[in-house]
């Protein structure tokens, strides 16, 4: 079963001169770790926003586990998806426990069961000792890890992450990537964007490279590297398809 299907997606923001998405199409199977890669301005964040139901496409269709992303299915799809935004979407003045309790309550969880789940996840992410410390006192890596916990409180079967390891140290990055592998092994799908192509090469089973609102190529990283005799790694493949020109 296909986890995510994107068909002929078009999107032009109001007031924009150029469309952001121009007939984007790709699909990822359910239970895979997939990477959505592209240079700045390629349309990755818009694509993720449409997949999550935050932005409406002008044309085209998105299917999540065979359900169309429309008003009729939006609530059901929200239950399936967990999103880790690029920014730390937590209240800096509140502690991790207070933040996670609040977002847990919004999901409808409460009481001891919620607190137990929060403490388990804080332990998994190595934050149990800082559970009651305000988020603004956390290091960059700690904030990233707390940001992920807030997205998986409801145990989503599709986890969407927008550059989850940006600006974190090697230890935190290793921990986060290991968690993603473990989470995927439990049968959950992961869609992830990153500019760290070495990381994407090691983590993803499938990648889509997109540029200027269109899909350029899709495939398994190893197969994509092998298909280009001049390429030794995913970064070479990426540059091969997207070029060396600087982007705005």
């Amino acid at each position: 079963m296909a986890g995510i299907v994107v068909k002929d997606l078009y999107k032009t923001y109001k007031g924009a001169e150029e469309p952001t998405l121009k007939g984007l199409s790709f699909s990822f199977r359910e239970g895979s770790i997939a990477g959505l890669l592209g240079p700045n301005g390629a349309g990755k964040t818009t694509t993720i926003s449409i997949i999550c139901g935050l932005v409406r496409a002008n044309d085209g269709q998105v299917l999540i586990n065979d359900m169309p992303q429309d008003a009729a299915h939006r609530e059901r799809i929200k239950k399936l998806i967990g999103v880790v935004p690029q920014r730390i979407a937590l209240y800096p003045q509140l502690s991790a426990v207070e933040n996670l309790t609040y977002f847990g309550n919004l999901y409808g969880f409460k009481g001891k069961a919620l607190l137990q789940r929060i403490m388990e996840l804080l332990e998994v992410f190595g934050l149990e000792k800082s559970a009651h410390k305000e988020i603004y006192k956390y290091s960059g890596g700690m904030k990233r890890r707390a940001n992920i916990i807030a997205a998986i409180l409801h145990n989503p079967s599709l986890l969407v992450l927008d550059e989850p390891t940006a600006g974190v140290d090697v230890q935190s990055r290793g921990m986060i990537l290991q968690f993603l592998r473990d989470y995927n092994r439990q049968g959950n799908s992961i869609l992830y964007t990153s500019h760290l192509l070495e990381e994407a090469q090691s983590l993803c089973e499938e990648v889509v490279i997109m540029d200027e609102g269109q899909m350029i190529v899709q495939g398994n990283p190893k197969e994509l590297i092998q298909s280009q005799p001049t390429c030794d790694n995913l970064e070479d493949v990426f540059l091969h398809y997207t070029g060396h020109a600087l982007r705005d």
Partner: peptide, 14 residues
């Protein structure tokens, strides 16, 4: 809106 918590709230069912 800036730090993304609004986005997180909107992604939560309900």
């Amino acid at each position: 809106r800036e730090d993304g918590s609004l986005l997180r709230m909107k992604l939560i069912p309900g």
